[in-house]
Design a protein around this nucleic acid. Sequence first.
DNA 1: CCGTATCCTCTGCGATACTG
DNA 2: CAGTATCGCAGAGGATACGG
Lengths: 113, 113
Amino acid sequence: MKIRDKYTCPLELIFDMIAGKWKCIIIWRLRLGKQSLAALNKDIEGINQKMLLQHLNELMDCKIVDKNTYEGYPLRVEYFLTEFGKEILSGLEVFQSIGKKYLKAEGNVIELC
Amino acid sequence: MKIRDKYTCPLELIFDMIAGKWKCIIIWRLRLGKQSLAALNKDIEGINQKMLLQHLNELMDCKIVDKNTYEGYPLRVEYFLTEFGKEILSGLEVFQSIGKKYLKAEGNVIELC
DNA sequence: CCGTATCCTCTGCGATACTG
DNA sequence: CAGTATCGCAGAGGATACGG
């Protein structure tokens, strides 16, 4: 993740925070509540554990995502959106609905997300 | 620009369309109306003409941006947002205001955009 | 079940120079 | 002023294996 030293526009800062192949979909999947790593890994088609973890860590660096860790075996963690993350989510919801409309106009009938 | 063959989420499609270091700022700058290439090049700090053109072309491929070309010398073109582009813009406005709020909370007093 | 370390590939970005 | 062509590099993304 490349956060620049200097921004001329607030938009760019937020955008850099969520730039990355899987960031937006991770946030999207966390919209309904806490998720374990394994659950995310299973739900997000095409991702592998390493990339998931890397993106989650970057999202945590930006305070978009946080996690709870529970001691004991089997290990258990819960990733979830912070309040800041939920604000970001509200922007993504706009894109989600634009995308849905776009796909429908293109004749796609896939049932997605 | 990497548009995938298959999407499980409409959000990802829209996101891939505007992924790229300069895409969102270009759209942002076009929010107030038509702009020549030279004007964009001057206004967007740090970009060079080649990258600007490449990103504009990709945005045109996705029908987010369109342009008018006027014959004669000196050459003149006008890049502008399509209706689809304006929808995308409405999502970016959310990030802009989140970013502004975030920077203010961080103690930044810069006057941006 | 969570998380880290290595290694490798591919492409986004950028510097530079050139054409109409 | 608008647009194209080359070339190089850093870093994002991914396969795989290992450790707590």
